[in-house]
Structure formats: structure tokens, C-alpha cells
């Protein structure tokens, strides 16, 4: 059960219950749909980019606690960052989930997501929003991605 506490930490539970930036951005200029067909997680990530700066980022959708908390934490972490900075953060998150060495300064609060590394079946839940924001940044039209 100790791994469980590691996975479902207070921060995760809190972001699952009260997800931050859980809204549409009316003037979003980038948007992507993420879908994890295996467990039915579905979300939309909205982005407002100003040049290469992330002015605003938000999401809506439904899914398990891990996917919801991850999306919520992501929006907090990426707001105000440049695309390059966002990319660097994403790489750190990914490393933390696969048990690789990470840069704590860059990772910050997102470290709570590293609990999934003990639960290989759940890594996809945690990465869904990150893959989706990635797709949203890269594309200037509505795009759908699936983690399978």
C-alpha cells in the first residue's frame, strides 16, 4: 500500500478534486483532443500562444485521478513559459515517470507525478495531457491524438 500513497499523494488528490484551469479558453489559437481509449480518459487542451510564449493554457475533460491531476498540474506549470521552456519541462516530467535522473529545479511540484513509475499501466494516464499539449503546440488546427 505504500506505493499507493506515493501515487495518490495529497497534491494529486487535491488537483483531481479541484482541477486548476479547468475551463475553455474562448480565444484559444491552438487546441487538441487527447483520448486514452483503454480507460476512457478524454480531454481537450486549449492554448493561447503569443509568439512562442504560452499566454494561457487550460483543459476540460474527464478521466482518472492521475490524468486529471496531471493535466491540472501541467496547466499551472506551463502558463507564462516559452515553448522551449515547456519542452524542457515536458522532458523532465517524462524522465521522472520512467525513473530517470531529473533536474529538480525544472521539475518542481511536478515531481508528484513520478509516483506512476511504479505503475507501468498508469504512465499513459499521466502523460495524456502532456502529449496533447504537445500536439496542440505543433498544430494550428484542431487535432486529435490517442495514446494507443
Amino acid at each position: 500500500m505504500s506505493d499507493l500513497r506515493e501515487l495518490y499523494q495529497q497534491v494529486i488528490m487535491d488537483h483531481n478534486k479541484r482541477p486548476r484551469n479547468f475551463r475553455e479558453i474562448e480565444k484559444a489559437n491552438h487546441l487538441a483532443h487527447g483520448n486514452n481509449p483503454l480507460c476512457g480518459d478524454k480531454l481537450v487542451v486549449y492554448l493561447k500562444l503569443d509568439g512562442d510564449k504560452i499566454d494561457d493554457v487550460s483543459f476540460k475533460g474527464s478521466g482518472c485521478a492521475i490524468s486529471m491531476a496531471s493535466a491540472s498540474l501541467m496547466t499551472e506549470a506551463l502558463k507564462g513559459k516559452t515553448i522551449d521552456e515547456a519542452q524542457a519541462i515536458y522532458e523532465q516530467v517524462h524522465k521522472s515517470m520512467t525513473g530517470e535522473e531529473t533536474d529538480r529545479n525544472l521539475l518542481g511540484k511536478l515531481e508528484v507525478l513520478s509516483g506512476v513509475k511504479e505503475f507501468p499501466a498508469r504512465v499513459k494516464c499521466a502523460t495524456l495531457s502532456w502529449h496533447t499539449v504537445h500536439a496542440a503546440i505543433d498544430s494550428d488546427h484542431d487535432i486529435s491524438i490517442s495514446t494507443e
Binding site: M1, L4, G40, C64, A65
Partner: peptide, 29 residues
């Protein structure tokens, strides 16, 4: 208040194997 996918993981930690998902019956879901 608990998504089925979380249920599956928590059960597994206690040795209880169940299925979570749409069970190949999405119209029922």
C-alpha cells in the same frame, strides 16, 4: 468519486484482479 481506472490500480495493490474499462461494450457505457 473514484474513476474505475484508479479502482483497478488500488485493487491490484491488494491482490484483487478485476477488469476496469468499457469491457468491449462501449454502447453500454
Amino acid at each position: 468519486g473514484v474513476h474505475p481506472h484508479d479502482v483497478g490500480t488500488i485493487f491490484d495493490q491488494q491482490g484483487v484482479a478485476i477488469r476496469t474499462g468499457h469491457h468491449c461494450a462501449q454502447p453500454v457505457m
